[in-house]
Simulated scan of single mutants.
Amino acid sequence: MSIASAQNDEDEKLAMARAAAALIARWGVLSETAARLLEGEGRAAAMLGIHRALRCIFVDSDRAARWIGAPNEAFGGVCALDLMLADGLEGMQRVEAYLDAEIAS
């Protein structure tokens, strides 16, 4: 990999992290909780995937933000945010897969 492409990869990761942080803030998540959500490889991309899916399901971004914090039977009565905090990247992938399945149905 060339130095230029490595820099582009880092720039892309930074841009994804910034976009994911802005998204989480729009959901009303506190800063320390947001930091826990975004720490680790692949998490910003997962958060953006969740956002993409929510945009397909909900036109209203406020409704999407409420969905993230509402208890959900699909997650054993736990809200998506708590699932993502408890299970990290695996929880985020589970939320994204659930939303993608909802879109497909």
Rank of each mutant, 00 (worst) to 15 (best):
M1F: 11
S2L: 09
S2M: 08
S2C: 08
S2I: 06
I3C: 00
A4L: 12
S5D: 11
A6V: 12
D9T: 12
D9M: 14
E10T: 10
E10R: 13
D11I: 13
E12A: 14
K13A: 10
L14T: 12
A15W: 07
M16L: 12
M16R: 15
A17S: 14
R18D: 01
A19E: 15
A20V: 07
A21L: 09
A22F: 03
A22C: 09
A22V: 09
A22D: 15
L23N: 07
I24R: 01
I24Y: 01
R26M: 10
R26Y: 07
R26F: 12
W27D: 08
G28E: 13
V29I: 15
L30Q: 10
S31V: 08
S31N: 04
S31H: 05
T33L: 13
T33H: 07
A34D: 03
A35T: 11
R36W: 04
L37K: 01
L37G: 07
L37T: 10
L37F: 14
L38D: 05
G40H: 14
E41F: 12
E41Q: 14
A44G: 08
A45V: 06
A45W: 04
A45L: 08
A45F: 05
A46R: 01
A46E: 15
A46C: 15
M47W: 15
M47K: 00
L48W: 09
L48T: 08
L48I: 10
L48Y: 07
L48A: 09
G49H: 11
G49N: 13
G49R: 15
I50C: 06
R52E: 05
A53Y: 04
A53K: 08
A53L: 10
A53C: 12
L54R: 02
I57M: 06
F58P: 01
F58K: 05
V59W: 09
S61M: 11
R63L: 14
R63C: 08
A64F: 12
A65V: 03
R66I: 13
R66N: 06
W67T: 02
I68Q: 06
G69N: 11
G69P: 01
P71W: 06
N72P: 00
N72K: 03
N72F: 02
E73I: 02
E73C: 03
A74R: 10
A74F: 09
G76R: 03
G77T: 05
G77S: 02
G77Q: 03
V78E: 12
V78C: 05
C79G: 04
C79T: 11
C79V: 06
L81A: 07
D82C: 05
D82G: 02
L83E: 05
L83H: 00
M84W: 03
L85V: 07
D87G: 04
D87L: 09
G88I: 07
G88Q: 10
G88K: 06
L89Y: 14
L89N: 03
E90L: 07
G91R: 08
M92W: 00
Q93F: 11
Q93R: 13
R94T: 01
A97F: 08
A97C: 04
Y98I: 00
Y98R: 01
D100R: 13
D100F: 02
D100C: 05
A101I: 04
A101F: 03
A101P: 01
E102P: 00
E102T: 01
I103W: 02
A104G: 01
S105F: 09
